[in-house]
């Protein structure tokens, strides 16, 4: 997989919020077919990094390249058209719309109704609970179901790559396992994944490679298994007392 072509490349990314220097010279890349995870504590800059990629915040300098397109010069609503879909932090489903309508919003950029229908069927097959609740108002779903809906909604755009921002946030351990197994499934069907997580243990288990983000800079990187075995990572992020 290390020889696969680079899909997303971030070089020397700098982001400011007013005078606060949130992201300092962050560089990383994601190759086709990989699951790459960006782990770090609260406030390390994980979400800001993702928002810079998806255009919700503007980077001050650096390069953001996705499959040959420069993301920095692009408005947020154009980026999904390149095949880069995001499952945002806190899920941010459209709570007053039905499950079905949320998924339709996921397919907003597409006009190929025959293929959209096929994707509906595929997603309902993979996430049968959404099918049962397709007419239900999304805000009435449980946290785990909402997370599944947010993932399903992102998949409905038929993306090349999926960005996931803390999909395990606020979920019970059982549901966390379920969400991670969905992510693994999606990846095995060929989807490239960039996963931002505080839950380092689970993230390192399913990822190929990982980067550790600390106060706005990348402090460590390597294969997920190397990082999972690293004493510093184990002490800081995996709760190991050694």
């Amino acid at each position: 997989m290390a020889d696969n072509k680079v899909m997303l490349s971030v070089k020397d990314l700098e982001v400011y919020y007013g005078s606060i220097h949130a992201i300092k010279k962050v560089s990383f890349e994601v190759r086709e077919g990989e699951i790459v995870t960006l782990i770090g504590a609260n406030g390390a800059g994980k979400t800001t990094t993702l928002h810079a990629i998806s255009g919700l915040v503007k980077a001050k300098s650096g390069e953001l390249d996705f499959c040959g397109s420069n993301l920095r010069s692009m408005e947020a609503h154009r980026i999904i058209r390149l095949g880069l879909a995001q499952v945002p932090e806190g899920r941010r489903i459209f709570a007053s719309m039905t499950v079905q309508e949320n998924l339709e919003m996921g397919a907003y950029i597409r006009r190929d109704s025959a293929n959209i229908q096929k994707d509906f069927d595929r997603i309902f097959e993979r996430l049968p609970r959404l099918k049962e609740r397709r007419r239900q108002i999304a805000g009435t779903l449980s946290g785990g179901e909402q997370q599944m809906l947010a993932i399903g909604r992102a998949l409905m755009s038929n993306p090349k790559m999926l960005l996931l921002d803390e999909p395990s946030m606020g979920l019970s351990p059982l549901l966390v396992n379920e969400i991670f197994s969905i992510i693994r499934d999606v990846n095995q069907s060929g989807m490239t994944v960039l996963l931002v997580e505080q839950n380092a243990k689970q993230a390192l288990e399913i990822a190929n490679r990982a980067y550790v983000l600390e106060t706005g800079t990348i402090s460590m990187s390597g294969t997920a298994s190397d990082l999972a075995a690293d004493p510093k990572v184990r002490a800081a992020y995996l709760g190991a007392a050694d």
């Binding site: 998806s54 255009g55 919700l56 408005e75 947020a76 609503h77 154009r78 999904i80 058209r81 879909a85 995001q86 945002p88 941010r92 489903i93 459209f94 709570a95 007053s96 719309m97 309508e101 339709e104 919003m105 996921g106 907003y108 950029i109 909604r153 755009s157």
Partner: peptide, 19 residues
């Protein structure tokens, strides 16, 4: 639907490709 989505969460609607 784009109007409703934008009214509920403009940022999330942008991620769906809504201008």
């Amino acid at each position: 639907k784009a109007m409703r989505a934008t009214s509920e969460d403009a940022g999330a609607a942008k991620l769906m490709g809504v201008s």
